[in-house]
Computed example of a mutant assay.
Amino acid sequence: MTSVDVSADLRELKATLASVEAVLDLPSLRREKEELEAAAAEPALWEDAEHAQKITSRLSYVQAELKKLAELHSRMDDVEILFELAGAEDDPSAAAEATAELASIRKAMDELEVRTLLSGEYDERDCVMTVRSGAGGADACDFAEQLMRMYLRWSEEHNFKTETYDISYAEEAGIRSATFGVKGPYAYGHLSVEQGTHRVVRISKYDNQGRRQTGFAAVEVVPALEQTDEIEEIPEDELRIDVYRSSGPGGQGVNTTDSAVRITHLPTGLVVACQNERSQLQNKATAMTVLKAKLLQRTREQERAKVDELRGSATASWGDQMRSYVEHPYQMVKDLRTSFETADVKGVYDGNIDGFLEAGIRWRMSGEKNV
């Protein structure tokens, strides 16, 4: 890489960083950090645990964003000096190290730039995810469990908290469905692009003849409900509430009482269950919160569909098949909307899905611009 190329690349990266900082409103971020630090230092903060968690979570996020921006400035200064030293000393190994660092900076910049695209009304929120097995028997159930693990691993890698509300285990292997919350800044903005039908193609572990099997799983993502959301109380005659004994792995007391709660919204057929707490009342409260979030999301989707119909929109449906995971006869995970793909199937199952999320966010943004 010539000095001219390096100078041009650095100028482009610095211009991009300046644009990102303008979109993120750096002065406002710094002010917010000071305000949150003051709030976090209040002696009475933890009298309201939920509010305290929001304050500390947001503070951690803002601090991390500012640190990331400062580090990028420092890294760009350092890599410029590294290229100059490599050229002056005619050192190929130093030049290779500088080139690798420049590529790493560009990757970090791309990830940061994607964050500026998360400007939707609910993108900043936590989210609730549901993974359901579809056609494909035991392989589909096993695949659904792999997807749940994939999202939990991704959340762990990004320091997002997760809370599992309900798991329905399949008889032979895997799960029929699971509902869990992902809590962290922009959790919904990042993971909303995962909504849709996922397909796996592999040699079945559950077929005596070892034949190739196709299985499907559906992923649903809704933004978490907040106190500012306007949603009417649901009349009791529209709800069927069933209590039952929790199933599957759990603590010593989890399977001995009828603490699990299943709520069915009769007009829509939506069903929500929760069994993660020992208390029936706690499970009922959590299930009602998830149900309201899903009803609110359904209302939003219906309103959006009406607008799209008026506009003559032909954008892809989130419910359509959107990603394939091929384990045989070759290794490939491919997003059918964005064409982003990787041969590292194991890495994807281990939560390495940032490339898919970034491509999905950019794809969604381009679709919104074209509507």
Rank of each mutant, 00 (worst) to 15 (best):
Y61E: 15
L66F: 12
W46H: 07
I55H: 09
H73M: 04
D78Q: 14
K67F: 03
K67L: 10
Q63T: 00
A49I: 13
K54P: 03
T56P: 09
K67E: 12
Y61T: 11
E50L: 11
E32V: 04
M76E: 08
Q63L: 02
R30N: 08
S60Y: 03
E50K: 14
L66N: 10
D48G: 11
K68A: 02
R58K: 14
M76N: 05
A52Y: 04
T56E: 14
V79S: 13
Q53F: 03
I55E: 07
S74E: 05
Q53I: 01
A44E: 05
A44M: 00
L29D: 08
I55W: 09
R30D: 07
E65K: 15
D48P: 10
V62N: 11
K68E: 07
P43V: 02
H51G: 04
E71F: 05
E71Q: 09
K67Y: 07
R58L: 07
E42F: 05
Y61Q: 13
K54Y: 06
L66T: 10
D48E: 11
E37A: 08
Q53R: 09
A44W: 01
K54I: 03
L29W: 10
A64G: 10
A64K: 12
A52L: 03
L69H: 03
A49E: 14
A64N: 12
E37G: 00
E65F: 08
R31S: 13
E34V: 08
A38S: 11
A40W: 04
A70G: 11
D48I: 10
A41M: 00
E35N: 12
T56R: 15
A52K: 05
L59P: 05
E34K: 09
R75D: 15
L36E: 00
K54E: 14
E35R: 14
L72S: 03
D78E: 11
A52C: 02
D77P: 01
E32Y: 05
E35C: 05
V79G: 14
A70F: 07
V62G: 10
E32N: 01
K33W: 14
R31L: 13
H51D: 04
A52N: 02
R31N: 14
L66S: 11
Q63N: 04
A70Y: 08
L69D: 00
A44H: 01
